[in-house]
């Protein structure tokens, strides 16, 4: 009994130093941010939801939120599909170990390339007279002024896909390999084809993994701001003005009240989105998930 108690204290002792840091730098100040979102910037007086109303009625906020959502809606499915294809292709050539390793390494390289190192290349590729338009010109296609027209959105999507595909390929491969081979064999004995195996075994068994893959891709999507900001600056073409730009610009203007409200909103939005995803997953395959996930926080435990 005494030992049990002591063990509890030890566990807490391991966690406390790290958790104190987390609390000091993230949790406690966020409470302050929450408070600030309800008070005026000057005078610190309580003003109800006024800051939130200001944020919502701000045209730049609407533009940025819309763009960010649109970006997610285009990029996430595209990234997941492309990387799944690549992962399936890779597993098909897995017998050739050398080729498999080289290809996988190549896909992961963009992850290691610091964002700042490719800025110059992006500028050269997507310039009005850059590489891309040069290539298009060879085929007789008239190019675009990529960074200064609506096409900038495409550039952003491209940057995100280039950077993150390798990461998600590795996630898919891990998920694919977690499905026991014996299940496929059994199914094949019963006369199932490749497609049947994929839809009836691979996908259902990978559900928890797929959930995490979506969440991780979502989180990484916010980092696309780095490239966007470095290539196009604080005020890029309208179609790639993201929430991250808005936060940075408000921050520079020191409009703390607005940024506090916006931070709380973004926090709720991200949290809500992830819970929604979780709901969808749980709803469609309740029984399976109950058995393999534990509790509300399923996928993360």
């Amino acid at each position: 009994m005494k030992k049990q108690k002591r063990r509890k204290v030890t566990g807490l002792c391991f966690v406390l130093p790290g958790f104190t840091g987390v609390a000091v730098f993230y949790l406690i100040p966020f409470l302050d941010v929450f408070r600030r979102s309800f008070v005026t910037a000057i005078g610190n007086r309580f003003c109800g939801f006024r800051n939130y109303r200001t944020v919502f009625s701000n045209a730049a906020f609407r533009l940025a939120a819309g763009n960010t959502l649109q970006f997610l809606a285009v990029c996430l499915p595209l990234l997941l599909a492309l990387s799944l294809l690549a992962a399936l292709g890779l597993s098909a050539v897995a017998e050739n170990e050398k080729l498999y390793a080289i290809l996988k390494g190549a896909y992961l390289i963009p992850l290691a390339v610091p964002a700042a190192s490719v800025v110059l290349l992006w500028r050269l590729v997507f310039d009005r007279y850059g590489f891309l338009n040069g290539i298009l010109d060879v085929f007789g296609i008239a190019g675009e002024d990529w960074m200064n027209s609506g096409a900038a959105f495409g550039v952003l999507v491209f940057g995100y896909i280039w950077k993150n595909t390798g990461y998600v390929v590795v996630l898919w491969l891990a998920g694919l390999s977690s499905v026991p081979e014996t299940l496929y064999e059994a199914a094949r004995v019963d006369g199932a084809g490749k497609w049947d195996c994929f839809v009836r075994i691979t996908i259902p068994l990978m559900r928890p993994a797929i959930f995490m893959i979506v969440v991780i891709s979502l989180l990484n999507s916010f980092k696309v701001f780095r490239e966007a900001w470095m290539v196009a600056g604080s005020y890029p073409q309208e179609s790639i003005y993201l929430l991250q730009h808005l936060f940075n610009n408000w921050f520079r203007d020191l409009s703390m009240d607005r940024i506090a409200a916006a931070a709380v909103l973004l926090c709720i939005a991200v949290f809500g989105l992830i819970r929604l995803l979780q709901r969808c997953w749980e709803g469609s395959r309740q029984r399976f998930i109950k058995s393999s996930w534990t509790g509300r926080w399923g996928g993360f435990e």
Binding site: P29, F30, V33, V215, F222, F251, M256, A263
Partner: peptide
């Protein structure tokens, strides 16, 4: 916290 983008915690970090 792991799920939150930097923009959510930016102001908090700045204040501390």
């Amino acid at each position: 916290l792991m799920m939150m983008p930097f923009q959510v915690t930016m102001l908090s970090e700045y204040l501390v």
